[in-house]
Amino acid sequence: MAIPRVLNRRNRILLKELTKTDFKLRYQGSVLGYLWALLRPLMMFAILYVVFAKLLKIGGDIPHYPVYLLCGTTMWSFFTECTSQGIQAIVNRGDLLRKISFPKYIVVVSATLTAVINMLINLLVIIIFALINGVTPSPTWLLAIPAIFELYLLSLGLAFLLGSINVKYRDITSIWDVLVQALFYAVPIIYPIAMVASTSEIAAKIILMNPISQAIQDIRFGLITTETITAWNYLASPVTIIPPLLVVTFLIFGAVVFRRKSKFFAEEV
């Protein structure tokens, strides 16, 4: 895995073909096929919208709340899909690892790229909904790009780290499933962060130090409304650096662990 050959010709071909195959296989044998990439997050959104916005009447004072909610759930789905697919990638592709020699990270990246494609399709839906909802296009939309990228890098770092442990200890898959459920409530997706801030400012600050919250709030700030509370407009200046620092730490640590362990994947998987 020396630096110069990280993305040489052969690896690029492999990455492209494996991603294509992953994407095809995901919706193989279903009547609606690729449409499920769109329908799943939309259905989750519909449920959350009815329960939280209509029945519990949360988020009344946030402008464009339905799209704000949709944006949050979509990005959350992106994060969970990316990590869970990435963590299982090495085990799922075990047959390949045992038969040909290639940089193992390609398998993880190709598994997460399927999630990226799904997310991009859903991003289009968010933009359409936002326009229908009366959000005016603005240059702040561009701010969503680095935030989405940050969320992706975090997922990738976690996938590398947990995926390499998962080869030997398959418990990781189950542990992560539970952890993701818990994390969902620790991220301001269904509840507005302002609601937390009104009872405890400290709690709101801790929530925003989570890079997932920070990234999702930044995406909402850029795409939906500049009234969104974000890490950088709510946290004190030196603390703002914590979420991106966590992302970088996970990515580097994940890559180092993965690189060290990947030599033995073929034997252990």
Binding site: I13, L14, K16, E17, L18, T21, K24, Q28, D95, L96
Partner: peptide, 21 residues
């Protein structure tokens, strides 16, 4: 290597080819 029963012969040829470089 990498042959997948759910894919068509055509798709498998391209996939297997990619694995061979």
């Amino acid at each position: 290597v990498g042959f997948n029963p759910e894919l068509t012969g055509r798709e498998n040829v391209y996939l297997n080819g990619a694995l061979l470089g």
